[in-house]
Design a protein around this nucleic acid. Sequence first.
RNA 1: CGGGCUGUGGUAUAACGGUAUUACUCAUGGCUGGGGGUCAUGCAACCCGGGUUCAACUCCCGGCAGCCCGACCA
Length: 405
Amino acid sequence: MRQSELFTKTRKEAPKDEVSKNAILLTRAGFIHKELAGVYSYLPLGLRVVKNIENIIREEMNAIGGQEVLMTTLQDPEIWKKTNRWDDKVVDNWFKTKLANGNDLGIANTHEEPMTAMLTEFVSSYKDLPLYTYQFQTKFRNELRAKSGIMRVREFLMKDMYSFNRTEDEFKEFYEKCAGAYLKIFARVGLGEKTYRTVAAGGSFTTNLTDEFQTLSEAGEDIIYITDESKKMAVNKEVEDRGGEGRKSIEVGNIFPYGSKYPDAFGLQFQDEKGEKKSIFMGAYGIGLGRLMGTVVEVLSDEKGIVWPREVAPFQVHLLSLTEEAKKLADEAYQTLISHGIEVLYDDRDMRAGEKFADADLIGIPMQVIIGTKALVSKMLEVKERATGKTEELKVEDIINKLKR
RNA sequence: CGGGCUGUGGUAUAACGGUAUUACUCAUGGCUGGGGGUCAUGCAACCCGGGUUCAACUCCCGGCAGCCCGACCA
């Protein structure tokens, strides 16, 4: 798209109410807008990143047999009472509201209960299993204190998958498969080097140990000990306090074995080949999309701004037209690139070169194509890699080939 | 939820018991044109309520909001 038409604009100064790097850069670059503490809107550039992350996750979830659904934000309290999780004393971060008739209504903070309850309508035989459902859905959690920009918020988009298996072995097999899919996701969003599968305590509703995926970052709230660098394994300090050199990290995903607690609570069971009723083994698998986006910014940005990895960047190419004379050539390059299906942010604004460079570095699109007086003479385009600053001279066709590869 | 700090144009800030500074943004025009350039003109603000006072953005009380530390975090 043409940047002259983009309604957001960049800022030189950090907002005074943000301290975290992710919120400062994302706000300055025009990706997000804060509505309330811990409540952020996503602007065109930010939404593109979220959608890219969503698509990566969707591909990996589909690859392991996930079926996408979309469940509701408004939830029936009766469902939650069955597992004793409606009471504020048990789950204290509920947002709740009431119907016009005065009845209580829950506002989604997770979906174990409604998902399990819904499936009683469809699952009753061993032939119906295994089943893996997932969704991208907004969760609301009444955190006592929102903090760290988009890392810990009260309203956020989450991918939550739920697994339903016939046997514990079948469940474990899937659990490992999903762990593998998670590592692929984190690698694709550019965090592979720094992300570890981490043994953690399960929290209030799971007695078992669970697995978290932790990305090393000074902005993190957790501390992990790396147990095997080559296998990317670690253990959370909350499980095993060794002292010594823990590393700060951000929890970018988690997977939980639930056993049969939730399915049994709703009578979600199946009949095996012999007609016997059996319990279902359940698991849950979460990734917060906003937190993942914030983590990418925390880990990969530099002093000039954000550095998006290729697969999550809002555009593939940032085309900069530096002078009035270069405009015609830049227009042609823009048309050629988009006609080949390449997503281009075209800085066609009437501004000085310095400001365009600064904006491009702040916004962080991985490839910058710069058209100024140099290009008019050589007929070659200057291609600059945002991450390294390296430049090379290429023809438009070469750029297209490079991106298609 | 406990403790601390802070609320001034769209953004970031200054000063003051007598209605408000500067910069950026924005608008118009000039010079400029490869790393947020420059000159001129202009638009635009004191979180809300109460109190003290001749007079409150300023002091006091209450509220609301934001940030930080801690606790919490399926």
